[in-house]
């Protein structure tokens, strides 16, 4: 697989290599996903009916009601949470779940932000690798 290094800002960092679920629509965790399975239930979303569980979920930014924090916490408990999150911009609503998971549950869900140009590069990535104490991620592509 071809590796492309992409600069980013980490909100939560950790070592992890994972599959990708790429989307272009803003996303609301509250009302947008089935907690038991990680399947997207928002029919207006471009990855409707697909699962984010165990994948790096790529979406531009969070939207909607502020139930995102508890939704992600419950997905962590049920082991259906995305393994990582990539945004253009993450807001406190979205960071609540991963930050509380880190300090209260000892579970690391890396969250990173990339530029618009690099975001588009993630569309065809097969896997993404995250690192602790870094300012980049690696995207892997099929050759």
């Amino acid at each position: 697989m071809e590796r492309v290094r992409i600069p980013c800002q980490y909100a939560v960092s950790g070592n992890l290599k994972t599959d990708v679920l790429y989307s272009e629509e803003p996303f609301s965790f509250w009302g947008g996903v089935e907690r038991e399975t990680g399947i997207i239930t928002d029919r207006r979303h471009d990855r409707y009916d697909e699962s984010m569980s165990g994948a790096a979920f790529v979406f531009p930014f969070g939207k909607g009601s502020s139930g995102a924090g508890t939704t992600i916490m419950e997905m962590v408990r049920l082991k259906t949470a995305p393994s990582a999150i990539i945004n253009l911009e993450s807001d406190p609503v979205l960071l609540t779940g991963p930050l509380i998971a880190k300090y209260f549950y000892d579970v690391i869900i890396p969250v990173v932000n990339v530029t618009k140009e690099d975001y588009n590069k993630l569309k065809s990535a097969k896997q993404i690798e995250f690192y602790e104490q870094a300012d980049y991620i690696d995207a892997y592509y099929e050759e």
Partner: peptide
């Protein structure tokens, strides 16, 4: 404040200042 409608109302109608926070942050 958490709850999106409350955040939006407090900022826009009253002029109090909060970001979008989410339970339990």
């Amino acid at each position: 404040s958490a709850e999106s409608n409350v955040i939006c109302y407090y900022n826009s109608v009253i002029g109090a200042r909060t970001n979008r926070y989410a339970g339990p942050l």
